[in-house]
Amino acid sequence: MSETQYGRGDESPSSPFLNDQRLKIIGIAASGLFTLAVVGFLGVILYTQVNPDRFVNIIHPQFIDAFFVVLRIVAISSVLSVTGGMLVGLGRISETLPTRGIAKGYIEFFRGTPLLFQLIVIYSGIPAFWPPGQFPIANFSVPAAIIGLTLNHSAYIGEAIRGGVEAVPDGQMEAARSLGMSYAQAMREVVLPQAWRNALAAIGNDQVILVKDTSLLSVLAVPEIISTVQNINSATFDIWTPILWAAILYLAITIPLGKFVRYLEARADPTGGPR
């Protein structure tokens, strides 16, 4: 695997460093050692800590449930936070001072305080306005999780979109307005499509973080992956089997998500993409 990658460097000697034989040997040695260490560590874990029978048959149904809980929360929060982030981002670049100020304050608060804090405010703080036991939503943990993740990630996506818009040269707006387009038309037809492309990588990055942020939902008693690890560990005293399952399940979401974002980026590329 690493062999072929180094081979590719040979064919395009763009930098003198790539042709340095010694550097190449050091690189191969370092990556070889690293691979060996990882494989060895995994081998030791699998051999000494994990019972293959239990790995496959006993534990995984609980994880499958947790996986789908996480997947559902991610799917909903993802759609809502990208939509919310658009609004926040547009507010941030608005020419109206109050709109811009509100968007800025929103971003400062939700980026400036920990997500865990925000989740507690929503999950425990909001029901406190009702007399004990009177809060109308019975199972508030999943709704609270979705609200918290959405509000938090809308702030990050808003910033990504603002950055994307600011990276579009002023001449684009001028050219569009010179054709007689209104400000809104110029934004819709010319600026935002380019801003979206500019912001895609940052938005994708944020969505991967959103997946990993679901690990915090254990404090809201959401039956997600980390709380499943802890439950199984305290019931069976087995830690490495649930840890391995957790790793597999997180990567099962984040790796395809990353690929999907790269696909969107390629599709949005004006010369390499559509038609």
């Binding site: 040269p169 684009q172 001028e174 050219a175 010179s178 054709l179 499509p193 004006p270």
Partner: peptide, 27 residues
């Protein structure tokens, strides 16, 4: 008033045809 700029300012996400057609279509 037709305007042509020093730096072209073509819309990079549109083909040549789309660049020329977008004004009449949208405006």
């Amino acid at each position: 008033v037709g305007m042509v700029f020093q730096s072209f300012n073509l819309f990079p996400h549109m083909t040549a045809t789309e660049n020329v057609a977008v004004g009449p279509r949208k405006v």
